[in-house]
């Protein structure tokens, strides 16, 4: 292989005229972090609501939860992003579709919401499993003390269920970060996008993707460490994530 290694490429000015190639990658990294964080917040909020619905005795509630989860987890993420980005504006009334297409930062919002909803289905399933793993008597005890269903979830069931599912939630958080790279297909120039741009400008493909890999690895290490810390600070003596 006749490849011209050049690790100094990162410090050379990029052709956009705004800083070095490293600056490009860092801008991509920041956008990846922003997209992933927003997506994760969305995933947690919707995942929690749907997870609770799936755990309620009401048939209607669990049916709604079932439909939601199956809709979002049975379609490839790529297809979902295309659906939100290219198809949805065409399905809406003309004016609304036009407005949607002209939104500034449309790829960012679409990616964050699209990845967020996709991941929320997974969070929902885990949360429902976490709630289901608690002894039935916990709910009875909360109810018998006079707590309403909402209070029972808020003060008794959810604090325990979330503790139990923290380890798998860490994986889901990491998946959320990595899944934002799919947004390159709808024009979001995040870390993967910038690495590709760098490759096209400079032909230093290995350097570009090595740097991107290292950066993904670095964010994920931060997340894993943070979640480990969270697990430890929430640990309860005698329980699965406990000391």
């Amino acid at each position: 292989m006749n490849y011209n290694w050049n690790w100094h490429i990162f410090f050379e000015p990029n052709p956009t005229g705004a800083g070095t190639y490293l600056d490009m990658l860092v801008a991509g990294l920041l956008l990846t972090i922003k997209t992933a964080l927003l997506a994760w917040v969305i995933a947690l909020i919707f995942g929690t609501i749907i997870g609770i619905l799936r755990s309620l005795p009401s048939r209607t509630a669990s049916w709604i939860g079932f439909c939601y989860v199956e809709f979002f987890r049975n379609m490839p993420l790529l297809v979902q992003l295309f659906l939100w980005f290219f198809v949805l504006p065409e399905l809406l009334p003309r004016a609304a579709g036009l407005w949607l297409k002209q939104l500034p930062n449309a790829p960012f919002w679409t990616a964050a919401i699209g990845v967020g909803l996709f991941m929320s289905a997974r969070v929902a399933v885990q949360l429902a499993a976490g709630i289901g793993s608690l002894p039935r008597g916990q709910k009875n005890a909360a109810t018998a003390l006079g707590l309403t269903t909402a209070q029972g979830y808020r003060y008794v069931l959810l604090p325990m269920a979330f503790r139990i599912i923290l380890p798998p939630l860490t994986s889901e958080f990491l998946n959320t970060i990595k899944n934002t790279s799919v947004a390159i297909t709808i024009g979001l120039i995040e870390l993967t996008g910038q690495a590709r741009a760098m490759q096209e400008f400079s032909f230093q493909v290995f350097e570009a993707f090595t740097a991107a890999t290292v950066m993904y690895l670095a964010i994920n290490i931060v997340v894993v460490t943070g979640m480990r810390f969270l697990e430890r600070s929430l640990a309860i003596p005698g329980y699965i994530t406990g000391k």
């Binding site: 002894p135 008597g137 916990q138 009875n140 005890a141 909360a142 109810t143 018998a144 003390l145 006079g146 707590l147 309403t148 003060y155 008794v156 604090p159 325990m160 503790r163 309860i236 005698g238 329980y239």
Partner: peptide
């Protein structure tokens, strides 16, 4: 019902203290 239940104490076979 929540109001009524609050006036009656109940003790369970498996204690059901809130572990957290």
């Amino acid at each position: 019902l929540p109001k009524l239940r609050a006036r009656v104490g109940m003790v369970f076979q498996h204690f059901e203290l809130f572990p957290h």
